[in-house]
């Protein structure tokens, strides 16, 4: 998604983006949306953080989608993130066994989000990362970013995206290790320490 015509090969003209607005909460989030890791998986890690606006205030009405490969670097082709109960129409939740690689988490009233997923493996020339898409009231077009893990400095140094960025900006894409298996990743939409956001062309 780009804000201007990428001059691509398209023959069909794209449908414009719009904000999710304030009232998606009864439609898009689902129970266990951030419990992406199968139960008891040894490569489970917890990602958490806050989403801040340009005044430094946390957003209580944002949501993130996380999308990443499994620990071997393979991209899941597994449905079932949103399993429904065929009798009641309610959410059944994930089955706790399969890894779909995708989750959706809201910020809470404090602007805090968390997810438990599997440690992503490396793909191609990139250091391991989880892709993130940010949605919020006030955001007319969603924002893509990435959560890189801090554990392998050599891989981070060789990453094609990170190596293009000045240090201060690069650091906005690398999570901070809080303790074993728990990483903090804050997203700043605007201003000092603004997170690096991506467009794909």
């Amino acid at each position: 998604m780009t804000t201007t015509d990428p001059g691509g090969p398209g023959t069909a003209l794209p449908t414009p983006s719009h904000t999710v607005g304030p009232f998606y909460g009864y439609a898009l989030p689902f129970p266990g949306g951030g419990d992406i890791a199968p139960l008891g998986h040894p490569d489970t890690l917890t990602l958490r953080g806050y989403v801040y606006d340009g005044a430094g205030d946390p957003l209580p009405d944002a949501f993130l989608e996380l999308w990443g490969p499994d620990p071997a670097g393979n991209v899941p082709d597994v449905d079932g993130s949103l399993r429904r109960d065929q009798a009641t129409g309610g959410h059944l939740g994930r089955n706790g066994v399969e890894f779909t690689g995708w989750g959706r988490v809201q910020t809470d009233a404090d602007g805090h989000w968390y997810a438990r997923t599997l440690r992503p493996g490396a793909r191609g020339r990139s250091a391991p990362y989880v892709s993130v898409c940010v949605f919020a009231r006030g955001l007319l077009t969603h924002l893509f970013t990435r959560i890189y893990l801090p554990d392998d400095e050599a891989a981070l140094a060789a990453d094609p995206l990170l190596s293009r960025l000045p240090d201060a900006r690069r650091d906005t894409l690398v999570a901070a290790r809080e303790r074993d298996g728990v990483y903090r990743f804050d997203i700043r939409l605007q201003g000092e320490g603004e997170t690096v956001f991506l467009e794909f062309a």
């Binding site: 606006d53 005044a55 490969p69 020339r125 006030g138 007319l140």
Partner: peptide, 24 residues
Amino acid sequence: SSALRHPRQPPVTIDVRRDPELVE
């Protein structure tokens, strides 16, 4: 509502042709 919620820095462009393995 967009006033404090839009990035001031331009997005960083990723040319997907250079890396077909991107999870995105």
